[in-house]
């Protein structure tokens, strides 16, 4: 067993876990943050993507102890009260989902992608960048549309705010 302490969505948290505990299970079971999903368990689907120290990672492929000392943002940490994050709003607006299971990971990946491409995005880049996120419902048409729309909205808004939200 090891002690783990993290800052999750701006809140200091700690716990004692088995060393083999995956970060995603710590988030879901110890912290009750069930917005982060386990889809495939083989590191391919991306439903479990969260940000660790500002970078999108697959939380099913990282131990909780590995992340100890880090700052983590999950899907629950994006919205500001009842104001959706621009990427969440764009997914809603463009109907970038059907069943919604992959959506938290899609959104966390998209927020990271937009932050890394301040110059803007095109469809080919979005599709390449979404390679690690699998949707089994709809195809990716509206998801790509949502990411492109969010990227435009965030470029229009102050760049500082977009970064802080990421």
């Amino acid at each position: 067993m090891s002690d783990v302490s993290l800052v999750v969505n701006g809140r200091k948290v700690s716990g004692t876990v088995e060393d083999r505990t995956l970060l995603v299970h710590f988030l879901r079971e110890n912290l009750g943050l069930t917005g982060t999903h386990v889809g495939c368990d083989t590191s391919q689907c991306g439903a479990c993507v969260v940000h660790v120290d500002g970078k999108a990672v697959k939380s099913c492929t990282m131990l909780a102890v590995q992340a100890s000392g880090s700052t983590v943002t999950t899907i629950e940490g994006l919205a500001n009260g009842t104001d959706l994050h621009p990427v969440q709003a764009a997914f809603k607006e463009n109907h970038g989902l059907q069943c919604g299971f992959c959506t938290p990971g899609m959104i966390m990946t998209s927020v990271d992608m937009i932050a890394r491409h301040p110059e803007g995005l095109d469809e080919a880049t979005v599709r390449h960048e979404l390679e690690g996120n699998i949707c089994r419902c709809t195809g990716y048409h509206n998801i790509v549309k949502a990411v492109l729309a969010a990227s435009k909205t965030m470029a229009k808004g102050s760049k500082g705010r977009a970064k802080a939200a990421a």
């Binding site: 991306g46 492929t61 990271d112 960048e129 690690g132």
Partner: peptide, 9 residues
């Protein structure tokens, strides 16, 4: 290599 999340780790 892999995808963006894999490349971050």
């Amino acid at each position: 290599i892999g995808d963006p999340a894999v490349r971050h780790k």
